[in-house]
Design a binder for these strands. Structure first.
Length: 520
RNA sequence: GCGCCCGUAGCUCAACUGGAUAGAGCAUCAGCCUUCUAAGCUGAGGGUUUCAGGUUCGAGUCCUGACGGGCGCGCCA
């Protein structure tokens, strides 16, 4: 209907000879659905837009358009309103016909034709497998999953991916934390460095350590593990290398594999019981094993994008708008997290995705230019990467704020949250606020099964409809679909008409949500 | 100190990317229960869009500054 309106407006502008013909196509004719009924069903601001070029007052332009316009019979009225809006009124019969079309399309109503030439890789959550997902990740999961559904409905091809950081120092520290927990299980002899992970999940992880590894660990001399270093980070690193040396690289690797494997299983199950499924889990370790990082660095080297300073190797990301150059190889030769990111994002493009969307926490805003710089330096268009910055979640229990800190293990896991308030309520609240706003998640409110909680309000509405249907049968009536379609024009009361208008907006909502990447 | 994000009704959120009188729900107030779920329906009040300037036919939306909140400024991830 909108397209038809655009067409007739365009030809009316031509007819009225308002502006030069070449100019007509430079204006996009906007048709909006009115929020107020006295503004009709649709309205256009085109007169305001072109009045400057036409050198005629907007109101006059609107009058000319409305006079010359070729009125289709489904429009009952065309009205001009100051300062120059043109309002269109659609007749009830046409509105009702929309219902027929919706019923025919069933679940496909609002779906846009799939555009296979426009594939999107949507990466979200991607939390390090060093601990269970907490309530903040829940927001990412709910938002990312919903966004994927909206984008697909809007005709995009979307693949959801989780990047697993299953390699590097943080993983070593995770393993160290688990091993220390194992040692301290017998008798608490060792003080655990502050850099280590804590929380009950760490001691649970000791159960997946292979038997022969446990035997090796038990042989370790406790006094040999008492290290004193300048800071907590060095302490942890020193312990890691002592343990690696004494139990052997292969045993350490074995423990790492089983601990990480278990952690990933936990994360996967936390997400899937929340209704969030990923199409692909991308392992950093696998990428390293395929020497993708080396290849990426080699490519950068041949492009002369790298330079040496203070013994380390840097990428000149400042050339792409970053505020600092970034290290890719440390002075000890190990690659940085950023180096993996470059290789990973280049890999995404190599796999043929047109657009990359990353959902990151708002604390990662410094990454935008860095990642784009990485892509650009690998000869990809930095504009292909879009980053959605998700603001933080603050948990409340009624008026009381729930304090959280990941490292110390004092956090509320995502699973605990949705098991307490229910999956539907949790997901609803997570996406109810737009991603660029802080979210105050009130556990008490989420659990409340009353009209304070929109989730149960919606469920109630559904329950009522079902009960009306049941009542129809009880009274001996039949739900006659064809007869309904025949008499669809009788749906002309105020409420009915408003409902139809609402339904009509659905495809537009899908479209704008997809464009704005908003889930509300 | 520098940089990024945010500030809309008492509360939770909208406002179609610059359009009409800033809208919904909850809460408050006033009416509505012999028929299907009153967990409902009908209506009313509630706003200097944090503040001060600017840009233009028009600003919650864009620009500048202030105030308030969140986050970031590692050879951490």
């Amino acid at each position: 209907m909108k397209d038809k309106l655009k067409k007739i407006i365009r030809s009316s502008i031509k007819e009225g000879d308002l502006i030069e013909e070449d100019l007509i196509n430079t204006f996009e004719i906007e048709i909006s659905q009115s929020t107020q009924s006295d503004h009709g069903d649709f309205s256009s601001n085109i007169a305001l837009k072109i009045s400057g070029k036409a050198n005629i007052k907007p109101l006059k332009v609107a009058e000319i358009i409305s006079r010359t316009i070729e009125r289709p019979k489904w429009l009952t009225k065309i009205e001009v309103a100051p300062p120059g809006f043109i309002n269109f009124f659609v007749d009830d019969r046409t509105k009702a016909d929309l219902l027929t079309s919706i019923l025919e399309q069933e679940n496909n109503y609002g779906s846009f034709p799939t555009n296979s030439e426009d594939s999107i890789l949507l990466e979200f959550v991607s939390s390090n497998p060093t601990g269970p997902l907490h309530v903040g990740h829940g927001r990412h999961a709910a938002y990312g999953d919903s966004l994927a559904k909206i984008l697909r409905k809007a005709g995009h091809t979307v693949s959801c991916e989780y990047y697993i950081n299953d390699s590097g120092r943080q993983i070593d520290i995770l393993v160290l934390s688990v091993l220390l927990a194992l040692i301290n299980k017998k008798e608490s002899l060792l003080t655990v460095p502050a850099a280590c992970y804590q929380g009950s999940y760490i001691s649970n992880l000791t159960e997946v350590i292979p038997k022969q590894a446990i035997a090796e660990i038990n042989k370790l001399s406790i006094p040999g593990l008492k290290v004193k270093e300048a800071d907590e980070d060095r302490e942890a690193d020193a312990l890691i290398s002592i343990i690696k040396d004494s139990v052997g690289e292969s045993i350490f690797e074995e423990v790492t594999a089983s601990v990480v494997d278990k952690m990933i299983k936990i994360i996967k199950s936390d997400l899937s019981s929340f209704g969030v499924e990923f199409d692909h889990w991308f392992s950093e370790k696998t990428m390293i094993n395929h020497s993708k990082i080396d290849m990426a660095l080699k490519k950068l080297k041949t492009k002369k994008a790298l330079f040496n300073k203070d013994g380390a190797t840097w990428l000149n990301t400042t050339a792409y708008g970053d505020d600092k150059d970034r290290v890719v190889l440390r002075d000890d030769g190990r690659s940085t997290y950023f180096a993996s990111d470059i290789a990973y994002h280049a890999d995404k493009k190599e796999r043929g995705f047109d657009k990359l969307i990353n959902i990151l926490g708002s604390d990662h805003h410094g990454y935008i230019n860095r990642l784009r710089g990485g892509l650009a330096s690998m000869d990809y268009n930095p504009e292909d990467l879009e980053i959605v910055l998700m603001q933080f979640v603050t948990l409340y229990r009624g008026k009381k704020k729930v304090q959280m800190s990941t490292r110390s293990g004092e956090f509320i896991p995502m699973r605990e949250l949705y098991e307490e308030v229910g999956i539907d309520a949790a997901r609803f609240i997570y996406v109810s606020r737009s991603y660029d706003q802080h979210l105050d998640f009130d556990l008490e409110l989420a659990k409340e099964q009353s009209n304070l909680n929109p989730v149960y309000y919606i469920q109630y509405a559904n329950a009522r409809i079902c009960s009306v249907m049941k009542e129809i049968e009880k009274k001996g009536y039949k739900n006659d679909h064809d007869l309904g379609i025949k008499n669809i024009g009788s749906l002309d009361s105020k409420h009915e008409s408003e409902l139809i208008t609402m339904l009509q907006k659905y495809p537009d909502i899908i479209k704008t949500s997809a464009e704005k990447e908003s889930c509300q």
